[in-house]
């Protein structure tokens, strides 16, 4: 069962002694439903300081990539206790949204998704290519929030990568919220 896009799974392990890019490794590539299931790993198996990223083939999971420079991310910040009960479910649902081409005609705006395992709180984000395309960004956010089963009162924010890159404090401003 072929997927609409070929996807690359990346692994990142932070190592202060090395340049950021050198800590990023391509794990595998999937382009069928069967491939996906035979390669995918549980997020909770990752140790703190590590990330997974699933990105369309040809797009690197970094701001500098030409398909990410003008884009941004829908960010889901998890409370510490959510790591044990919600993390794997939320990450798997995110991946199913990606490989299932679930964002209607806006799916072509989706670049990939990243999960960061961090002591101060894990984060899952869906990256899109054009932060100025309000219609697509908002529709992707609405579908994503619904697919994650987040309650109406849980607000998720969209931040442009340029804002995240230049933020002074730890919180970049939200360009959109749903």
């Amino acid at each position: 069962h072929p997927l609409q896009n070929r996807w690359v799974l990346w692994f990142f392990k932070s190592d202060r002694g090395r340049a950021w890019q050198d800590n990023l490794h391509q794990v595998t590539m999937v382009d069928t439903v069967e491939d996906f299931w035979s390669h995918i790993q549980l997020a909770s198996k990752l140790s703190p300081g590590c990330d997974y990223a699933l990105f369309k083939d040809g797009i690197q999971p970094m701001w500098e990539d030409s398909r990410n420079q003008q884009g941004g991310r829908w960010l889901v910040s998890l409370a510490k206790q959510q790591r044990h009960c919600e993390l794997d479910r939320l990450w798997l649902e995110t991946l199913l949204c990606l490989i299932g081409d679930s964002f209607e005609e806006h799916s072509r705006e989706v670049c990939g998704a990243v999960i960061n395992i961090r002591p101060k709180g894990d984060k899952i984000a869906v990256w899109t290519s054009d932060a100025e395309n309000q219609a697509s960004v908002l529709r992707i956010g609405q579908v994503y929030k619904e697919r994650l089963g987040l309650s109406m009162k849980t607000i998720i924010g969209y931040q442009a990568h340029t804002d995240t890159a230049s933020k002074s404090n730890s919180l970049a401003k939200n360009k959109f919220v749903v």
Partner: peptide, 20 residues
């Protein structure tokens, strides 16, 4: 045509061995 799969369809393949 568009290859779009909903979550139920995808989950059906979760424990099926990949045919290599």
């Amino acid at each position: 045509g568009k290859k779009q799969y909903d979550r139920e369809f995808l989950l059906d393949f979760q424990f099926m061995p990949a045919c290599i």
